[in-house]
Each structure stands twice: as structure tokens, then as C-alpha cells.
Simulated assay, not measured.
Amino acid sequence: MSDQSRDETATTGPEGPDAPLHRRGIKSYVLRAGRMTQAQTRGLEEVWPRLGLTLAEGRQDLDALFGRRAPRVVEIGFGMGASLVEQAETHPDTDFIGIEVHAPGVGKLLDEADKRGLTNLRVYREDALRVLEECLPEGSLETLQLFFPDPWPKKKHHKRRIVQPAFVELVRTRLRVGGTFHMATDWEAYAEWMAEVMDAAPGYANTAAPETAPYVPRPEFRPLTKFEARGERLGHGVWDLIYRRVE
């Protein structure tokens, strides 16, 4: 399993296809218990009041939230947060919002962000679908990142995969026209699933060159995680897909 969180989704359930995604009853994440380190606890207790966001705050005015107008990147399932912190530090002119349900990862990211003095990073510890539906304005994002989500490899569990038609349409509405949806996975079968769903989704275009389609080489701006580096040494593959909103 990746060092990134295996995140969340919902698919059609008893309430029907017009119900909000988060109310359809099938999640793609499992909350895991884990011990909290001193640094993680500090992050949640001392840094959260400054950098943490909640559903109760409702629809965000992102310019007011960050005190400026800038490109906005959202990452779903940031795991322990090393990649997201690195991106925020490397790209100070971009604002980042991370969404993660697991307390140790949220605490670790907050502690590290505070130690590095980052002001361009905020965090939700909430269901990502609810954040997208209830808190992020339409057309407000430059990029949405989904790195190493749970592949749910058993066929009977495929309905739990976050990459589903309804989810990618929700993502499209939150991206600006020209914005990108960037996915990465270490499961080839899931990469093929992602490409199939995205190629059928209206309003998107694959950014891959014909010779590598549907995949793109790992972009330099996506930090190499410890998990991925270990996988590379063992000969494991990683597949990146980047689709642009065209309408």
C-alpha cells in the first residue's frame, strides 16, 4: 500500500443517482486506528486552529481565505503529507488545500507546515466528496491531485474506487476551464480503469502525447514519495494521468 492515503468516494446507493455523492452510502476509505506521535498531536492541537478547515464553514471565499488571488491546488488523500508540504514550499505563489481523513497524517502535515512557516497551505479532515460539494466554489481550482488512492483490487470492491463517472464530473465542475485533474497509481489495472472512466467523461481532454497515451511521464512537479522510490528500486511501475477541463 502506498504511503499516500487510500481515500474516499461514494457511488449510487438507495437515495438514487441525483443524491449528493457523499450520501450514496459507499466509501472508498477505511478509517485506521494509529498511535499519535508528539509532533502529530502538536499539529492537531496547536496548528489546526490556524490552518485547519471544516465543513461547518461552508462555501469558502478562497481569495479571502488566503488573503490573495493565486492558482489553487487541492490534493485528496495526502497520507502523511510529505509530498504536499514539499509542493507548498517549492511553489509559494500557489495555494494548496489538502484533504485527508486520518488524524496522524493531518497532524504530521500541520506540524511540518508550521515548522517551515508555510502560509499557502490549508487542511480539511473531512470526507473529500463533501468538501468538493459543499466548500469549494465551482471553477475555482487550477489542479486537483489524486495520488495513489486505494485501488480496491477485488472486482467486488471496484464500486469503492474513488474514480467513478459521477466523481470525475464533480471534479470537472470545481476546476477552471483549462485546469487539470492529475492522478497517479501504482496499480496498472487501476490506471487502465482511470483512463477508461476519464476518456468517457465529457468536458475533459487527455494531455498525454500520442506515443505515451493515455499516460504521461511523471511530472517533475510531483514529488517522488518514499513509497514510489522504493517501488522503483523493486521494478514496480507507476502511472500518471493528467486530463484538462476543456468545457
Rank of each mutant, 00 (worst) to 15 (best):
E188L: 15
P49D: 10
G16I: 07
H102W: 15
K115T: 06
A56H: 14
G231H: 05
A10L: 04
A64F: 02
I99E: 04
L144E: 06
L141Y: 01
A208M: 12
A113T: 06
A195W: 01
R174S: 02
L132K: 02
G235C: 08
R59L: 15
I162Y: 00
E89I: 00
N120K: 06
E133D: 09
R172G: 00
S5W: 07
P217C: 10
K27Y: 05
R174V: 03
A33Y: 09
E45N: 15
E8H: 12
E138K: 14
S2Y: 10
K115N: 08
F181L: 15
V47W: 12
S140P: 13
A184M: 12
H158E: 13
D186S: 12
W193G: 07
W152Y: 11
T225A: 10
M1N: 06
Y29S: 07
H102E: 11
P92R: 12
D18E: 11
D111T: 08
D95E: 12
V101H: 04
L65H: 05
A184V: 12
D111P: 11
E232I: 13
A229Q: 10
L51P: 05
R160T: 02
P104F: 14
P223W: 15
L132Q: 02
Y204I: 09
Y124G: 00
W187S: 02
D3V: 06
P104I: 11
R35N: 11
V74M: 11
L62W: 07
L170A: 08
V197C: 12
M183K: 00
A103I: 06
L241I: 04
R172Y: 03
V163R: 00
T225H: 07
P20S: 04
Q60K: 15
Y215P: 03
D127I: 11
L65D: 04
R23T: 07
L146K: 00
W48M: 13
L170G: 00
